[in-house]
Simulated scan of single mutants.
Amino acid sequence: MSYFNATDFTNPSTFILIGIPGLEEAHVWISIPFCAMYVIALLGNFTILFIVKTESRLHEPMYYFLCMLAITDLVLATSVLPKMLSNFWFNSREIDFDACLTQMYFIHCFSAIESGILAAMALDRYVAICHPLRHSTILTNPSVAKIGLALLLRSSIVTLPYPLLTRRWPYCRTNIISEPYCVHIAVVKLACADTRVNSYYGLFVMFFVLGLDVISIAISYMQILRAIFSLPTKDARLKTFLTCASHLCAIVIFYIPSAFSSLIYRFGQNFPQHVQVLIAIMYLLLPPMLNPIIYGVKTKQIWSRLRWFVTRK
């Protein structure tokens, strides 16, 4: 039976993941850079976790948040890439309905966790630069653990309505998803019901959860910049600003593709569909791949420890 025939059903047992629409013939070649990015993400993030665990001097709030970011990136990439590569390599397009909803939940939940961690890291930079003498008393190990737990609970609860709402709708048009993975908007489009509540809730999450994280980051950096410009010398200002360089890069590679992808999904009907899908994939793959590289190269303690391991062997 052809994958591309619409069917009449209300509770599909499976969905069909098309992959990248219009580029099906090139899936094998397209999978090569995606596989390489996934391998780099795995090696990089596990390396970060190993270095922080084995180096007692790195047992500080900044590096604990970095470990949280690495774990989040590993889960986010792993929730997408294995199924996508099996589609590209083995034409394994079917995904169980419950598995699709589970994948959807993990993608949105850990994207929200990553956003919260970036906001927490901005808070860490603010305290370290604006209140350096109180940093160790404000951001203690128990407080860092509480922040991490709060971010996990917030994201888990806020994104839970995505699969719950999606499960309610009847699907009587088709079970074909024009994506390489299950994302909320793509699945809801297949429902033959009034799904405006899903759209409104998605906008709520984007503006009042991710938006609050962005506002928190912006406020932290406004205070940081005020503190930097009050320093007496240019060298001191530059040196202090460079301590935020890694975090600023992580913010850029996460929020810009994320915002661009969300806007295209909702308002970019004139964009070619394969472009939309490729941008969405980059949003999920670039942070896990680039974050450990950025922090490994720009953080002297991590870079020196990594060089020590390599030269020792």
Rank of each mutant, 00 (worst) to 15 (best):
C67V: 12
D96Y: 13
R93T: 12
Q273Y: 10
I279R: 04
I215F: 08
F106G: 00
Y63K: 11
L76K: 02
V80E: 08
I253M: 12
P292M: 03
I302T: 06
P288S: 15
L23H: 03
A128V: 00
F9T: 13
S143E: 11
L286K: 06
T78W: 05
V277H: 09
H131D: 02
V127F: 02
F88Y: 15
C130I: 02
S143I: 14
P292W: 10
F46R: 14
L160F: 09
Q269T: 08
T233H: 09
I138A: 10
P292L: 09
H108D: 05
L285F: 10
V297D: 02
A6C: 07
P82A: 03
P287N: 08
V209G: 00
Y181H: 06
N45L: 01
V214S: 08
D213S: 12
L123H: 04
F65Y: 10
V158I: 13
Q301R: 14
I48T: 08
C100K: 08
A250C: 07
D96F: 07
P82C: 04
S220Q: 05
H247V: 01
T72E: 08
F97Y: 15
L278H: 07
I228L: 02
V214A: 14
T137Y: 06
L123K: 06
P21D: 10
S86H: 04
N198D: 13
L49V: 05
H135V: 06
K189T: 12
G44E: 15
S199T: 15
L290D: 08
R266G: 01
R305P: 04
Y64L: 14
F34A: 13
R307T: 07
V188M: 10
S216L: 08
K146W: 12
T299S: 05
A259H: 03
R173G: 03
L164V: 08
E94F: 15
L190F: 06
D235I: 01
I302F: 00
V183G: 11
W308C: 10
S246M: 15
I16E: 05
Y171E: 06
C244L: 13
Q273R: 07
C249M: 14
R196W: 09
A245N: 09
R134P: 01
A6P: 02
A120N: 12
T137N: 12
T174I: 03
S92A: 13
R125Q: 12
W29C: 03
